[in-house]
Design a protein around this nucleic acid. Sequence first.
RNA 1: GGGCGUUUAGCUCAGUUGGUUAGAGCGCCACGUUGACAUCGUGGAGGCCACUGGUUCGAGUCCAGUAAUGCCCACCA
Length: 888
Amino acid sequence: MSTTTPTEIAKAYEPHEVEARWVARWTELGVFHADPTSTKPAFALACPPPNVTGSLHLGHAVNGTVQDILARTKRMQGFEVLWQPGTDHAGIATQFVVEKKLYKEEKKTRHDLGREEFLKRVWAWKQEYGDTIHGQYKRLGASLDYDRWRFTMDESYSHAVRKAFVALYEKGYIYRGNRMINWCTSCLTSLSDLEVTQKEQADKLYHVRYPLASGQGELVVATVRPETMFGDMAVAVNPNDDRYKALVGQLVKLPLTDRTIPVIADEHVEVDFGTGALKITPAHDMNDYEIGLRHNLEVRNTLTPRGILNEAAGPYAGQHRDKARKLVVADLEEQGFLTKIEDYTHNVGRCSRCDTVLEPYLSDQWFVRMDELAKPAIDVVESGEVKFHPDRWGGVYLDWMRNIRDWNISRQLWWGHQIPIWYCPDGHYTTGETDPTACATCQKTELTRDNDVLDTWFSSALWTYATLGWPDETPELAKFHPTTVLSTARDIIYLWVARMIFTSLAFRKEIPFSHVIIHATILDPEGRRMSKSKGTGVDPLVVMDKFGTDAARFWMAGAGTSSQDVRFREEKIETYRNFANKLWNASRFVLMKAAPEGSGVPARPARLESAVDRWIVSRLHAVVADVTRHIEAFDFSDATTALYEFTWNELCDWYLELAKPRLDAGDESVRWVLREVLDTLLRLLHPFMPFITEEIHQLLVARGWSEAAETLQHRAWPQADPTAADPEAEAEMGLLIETVRTLRNMRAELKIEPAKLAPKVFIVATPADRAALERISGLIARMARAEEVVVAGLDAPPDAGKAATGLAGENQVILPLEGFGDVIAKEVTRLQKELVNLEQEQGRVHGQLGNEAFVGKAPAAVVDKLRARQEEIGTQLETIRQQLAKWT
RNA sequence: GGGCGUUUAGCUCAGUUGGUUAGAGCGCCACGUUGACAUCGUGGAGGCCACUGGUUCGAGUCCAGUAAUGCCCACCA
């Protein structure tokens, strides 16, 4: 493939070929490679590593765009930029998809293959999707340092994970606990609280009769899970519940069994929920477990890890929990133990991965004790050392950190970092950065390693520094850590952002990043969250193919930093496809008309005579300042708006149109201004639309019309020149625009054929505007399709004969109607409409100014402005009334 | 049950520290093939800024409340 920009210019921008060419070219030039020995100031971003579960979705593309804009801008601003890429092994998620595939294709489970063989399959999967992701980022134009691609299970990264585990263990932060955890009976692993999704579910509340052992009466308990009754160890009532006070301490018979259990009193029981009596199943309910601890109840497990009732359930053993419930209910019913069944809707915790209803399960797991570790992580956000954008997310983070609970880090999976703990026959634990050969406590050498792996977030928590070589003190670490900005989705603030902050503080004694951008979530056109399973996900590549990557990026830049969530619609991207084409054609115009081959580089004029030139330069520098400021504040959406409006509404609609006759006349200053504006604009647009801007830039370079850089990434970011601000030129241009619009409007309302030139147009100018209007009369004529525009003073109004009159401020625009047919009726209608509008406004203004409180208290500038307007309205009304009188 | 958002034109969204005529894109209507661009141009129609009170000379913007809607967090069986 050729890597040079073609010289002939297509009529419409063709993204595909251009994009492929530049992706290759950037790589060839090595512009994305970060140099730790550079003397430039560092700017580092760690790209959130996507899961290797599949390919990138729109959310990744949005986040990639946000980060790329920063990376590209900062490079141009003279920073040594590192944008660190990589992928996450995503333990449970990846294992889950590979198991699913395995079952679908070979009808095998991971146990059929065995651990080693299964892991081979996962690595193969990882290879495939890791490559896909790599390619997708390149397509997006992401200026990641691809040479530094990392994977959370790379050897060096695994070393960091091991180091982190051992360090925490040795400081006493990691402990083994036999505790209630969330258990997935399908994935067969424990989950952290964050991996639980609460979902509302319609269930039944069964009222079950527990007869008193004494034979005198009964206690009725309400439960949604009667099948767990074989684990019941007590019935609890509230100590203040008068109904049951006398029963506390007595025994009740557990239905369907021959066991008796005690009635106990516990504050936890709500008097007015259900029957006020709660069956206590310590092994299968978090609360019951707590109550059991308080009352020394036995924890009797009645379920297997797969959710099958075990031998403790007597005749029901071997039944799955759902089936067992039906059987138990039927038997209770039959034996007269069931007094009532109520409909009951409540929240049920489900596996965020496979949606299976989770089981509270007592088991041995490894935990990280969080209380002490959380403290500094709270401090750095409270102090503003780490800032969230928008800042409300800082509050969300703090709420969570302040109420943090210990973190279950062991997972009963195969895919991941195997926990570096060895057990000796005596049950001692041994860990170490290298595999131990003997028990650290008793020196026995028969060691078995823990089979479990670490929560995938344990490893990604080290991302900002483990990717840079930690625990070794590498040059990269010295140069690029702490990183500057982290941009991510809000749903991993707890899972990932919070944990990066506390681990970095723990291991590096420094924050991992100064700014956290929480980008907006992209929704489907109906406002729902995009989801793969519902088929509402959008493949960014499809969008990029259809409309061009730059168009997609331009939209994503705005969408990603929008203050609220954004619905995706193809039409939105289409808008920016059109914008890219507009830019392309504007450039094409400049190249063909202002910079034809061999025309040379225009010299800088000593002074810009034309107000039009000074206006666009003034506007350009305002835009440079605005865009720069917005990027600094991460308000890309404002930046794109400013760029879009300047390019389309000012440059294309007015400046280029006005430049046409001047170019024909050989005006050199127009050429100089065009070169200046386009070259600057391309640099401003480059972070947002890297491909098209590079392409145009090279076309300009080929004509000597731009600094001879191989890529815009080597060009300097534009500096706003405050002395370019020219209010006078802007005012004059405002006059031009207003006058032209008035004339166009008149012609349209009078239905004058667009093609027909007006032979002569008069403007009766106020003394203040007269000189300016005379200067720009030729331009007005051009833009408003008149052969000639004649400016006259108020003292000498022209005799225009039969003519239509319009208002541009206080200046009258007179359009003689000779030759335009019978349009008088239309003119009268038009004038009347205008009259009504003005009279209404006059009423309002009059009322305002008549209000003493307003005049007395409002700032003088506001009052003066209104007074001026009142005067203007007076003049305008007079003009219109005179005209109307002439016609009627 | 708590917390945080959102509610502005037919649709999707902007609206700075309150300033009097509330904007854009798409869609709609009318017109248009002047050599950058029909992926375009010109003009136009279209809004009780969710509702109710309050503060203020002045409220889309500030305050209180109400209603819809979305998301997060939370151990009432």
